[in-house]
Simulated scan of single mutants.
Amino acid sequence: MQQENKKHWKAGRKPKDNPAIFRYSVSFNATEHARFLTLFEQSGMKVKAHFIAACIFNRTVKVVKIDKAAMDYYMRLTSFYSQFRSVGVNYNQVVKVLKSNFSEKKALAFLYKLEKATLELVKINQQIIQLTQEFEERWLQK
Rank of each mutant, 00 (worst) to 15 (best):
residue 56 I to C: 05
residue 95 V to H: 00
residue 84 F to V: 09
residue 94 V to C: 13
residue 55 C to E: 02
residue 67 D to T: 08
residue 65 K to E: 10
residue 58 N to M: 07
residue 102 F to A: 11
residue 40 F to T: 06
residue 51 F to K: 00
residue 81 Y to R: 15
residue 104 E to S: 11
residue 103 S to A: 01
residue 62 K to N: 08
residue 99 K to D: 11
residue 77 L to F: 14
residue 76 R to I: 04
residue 38 T to I: 12
residue 100 S to W: 00
residue 86 S to K: 15
residue 74 Y to K: 13
residue 46 K to P: 02
residue 96 K to F: 08
residue 85 R to G: 08
residue 63 V to P: 00
residue 63 V to T: 09
residue 75 M to V: 09
residue 61 V to D: 01
residue 57 F to D: 15
residue 54 A to W: 01
residue 64 V to M: 10
residue 39 L to Q: 06
residue 52 I to R: 03
residue 64 V to G: 01
residue 94 V to E: 04
residue 73 Y to Q: 01
residue 101 N to C: 14
residue 40 F to H: 03
residue 73 Y to E: 00
residue 55 C to A: 12
residue 69 A to W: 03
residue 90 N to T: 05
residue 41 E to W: 01
residue 103 S to E: 03
residue 55 C to Q: 04
residue 104 E to V: 14
residue 56 I to N: 00
residue 60 T to Y: 06
residue 43 S to R: 05
residue 92 N to Y: 05
residue 52 I to Y: 02
residue 60 T to M: 14
residue 54 A to P: 05
residue 43 S to C: 03
residue 89 V to R: 14
residue 89 V to E: 08
residue 82 S to R: 06
residue 79 S to Y: 08
residue 51 F to L: 03
residue 48 K to M: 07
residue 91 Y to V: 07
residue 38 T to L: 10
residue 37 L to S: 13
residue 78 T to Y: 11
residue 72 D to I: 06
residue 88 G to D: 02
residue 67 D to Y: 07
residue 60 T to L: 09
residue 43 S to K: 02
residue 52 I to E: 00
residue 82 S to D: 04
residue 105 K to T: 15
residue 78 T to I: 07
residue 64 V to I: 10
residue 82 S to A: 08
residue 82 S to G: 04
residue 98 L to S: 00
residue 51 F to H: 02
residue 90 N to P: 01
residue 44 G to R: 03
residue 36 F to E: 08
residue 54 A to S: 13
residue 99 K to Q: 11
residue 104 E to R: 11
residue 91 Y to I: 05
residue 94 V to H: 10
residue 83 Q to S: 15
residue 43 S to T: 07
residue 54 A to F: 01
residue 88 G to T: 00
residue 77 L to A: 10
residue 47 V to A: 11
residue 87 V to W: 12
residue 68 K to F: 13
residue 84 F to M: 15
residue 76 R to Y: 08
residue 78 T to Q: 05
residue 101 N to E: 12
residue 90 N to L: 02
residue 83 Q to Y: 09
residue 72 D to L: 08
residue 79 S to D: 15
residue 75 M to W: 05
residue 41 E to Q: 12
residue 49 A to D: 05
residue 95 V to S: 04
residue 67 D to I: 02
residue 45 M to G: 06
residue 78 T to R: 09
residue 80 F to R: 13
residue 66 I to P: 01
residue 54 A to I: 12
residue 94 V to F: 15
